[in-house]
Nucleic acid binder design. Sequence first.
DNA 1: CCTACCGATCGGTAGG
DNA 2: CCTACCGATCGGTAGG
Lengths: 196, 196
Amino acid sequence: MTKIKAAKNSSKKDVIINKAAALFRTKGFIATSMRDLADAVGVEAPSLYNHIGSKGEILTVICFKVADSFNKQLEDTESENWNAAEKIENIIRFHITMMVNNFNEVFVANNEWKYLEDPFLQTFLNQRRAYEKRLITLIETGIKKNKFKVINPYVAVLTLLSAVRGLGFWQKNNKNINAKELEDDMVNHLISGLIK
Amino acid sequence: MTKIKAAKNSSKKDVIINKAAALFRTKGFIATSMRDLADAVGVEAPSLYNHIGSKGEILTVICFKVADSFNKQLEDTESENWNAAEKIENIIRFHITMMVNNFNEVFVANNEWKYLEDPFLQTFLNQRRAYEKRLITLIETGIKKNKFKVINPYVAVLTLLSAVRGLGFWQKNNKNINAKELEDDMVNHLISGLIK
DNA sequence: CCTACCGATCGGTAGG
DNA sequence: CCTACCGATCGGTAGG
């Protein structure tokens, strides 16, 4: 009985979080009111609090859901028997795929994380720094093995992450390019700029 | 007499706009209250309205100041007698320089423009689309002249602009890399990924 | 440039 | 899940 109730709550909670991700992306976290969200869900504002604890909790769930996805993928990639260039390419492709398939949530995690409350804000920033550090290590490996140009690895990571992040502006207004072409061209541009 | 008064007003207005740009960057436009801004300027909130018409006007001034800078620079670059690669490199360097030297305002124009009110919002978006289109034309020229790889020019522009935009995350927390190295490495990465 | 203040809206609670 | 409602804060105005 508790299980069923938990399942039901979790399902409605998912709806709320999905609607919230869409609103947070278009309007921003602060500019989205709980009444906006309630309208989107189809209930009155106070009813939302049967499923979530606070507005901030929704943002926390979204940001860490995205962070967990990226962390898990990076772990998987690191354990593969690939060279540095292959690993970097794999990660870039994952970033692009996530941007295309989970656009709202990734955009919110990228642009609204600053409204996280402590201690979540600190945890999020720590995780992001750790993620970047592991990418830097990958770049350094490629440089050491004489496969990559000698450039500042931090700048390389910044360039890669920023480029894929910018996909947020590939709004669907450009119908004449598909996701596959986008991904291949961007990967080509970024990887060939890196390789010796 | 009117001139002196105008000069004084303009000077105080500049202070307000600079403080606002810093606050809008760190807290976001919506989350920055006029009382926050008044505190930063050193007056009471209602006094701000002797210098500016509304909170929205401040954002408008910031966004179009940045847009005008980029438009002017692009016009200058286009009229130079350079090849496509040189022009693109010049523009990337300008973007990076703007990001480093006018960080607050560029960041705000990049991230908070969605809170512009009509008709300014539409004008801003139109200008941005026109800017991107001119960059696309530059890339197409390079491809046609067999200097650039055959990739989707829109994706190339997206990659370039996104990468320099991401400099917003090069907060000053990385003291061990200077602006010049950052600029050269990023330009190298992006341009060599583009050239045949 | 300030004090005093306004109507609107915010996130959230009480109680059923 | 709803109605009724709360204290806090918002952008901005009146008036001097």
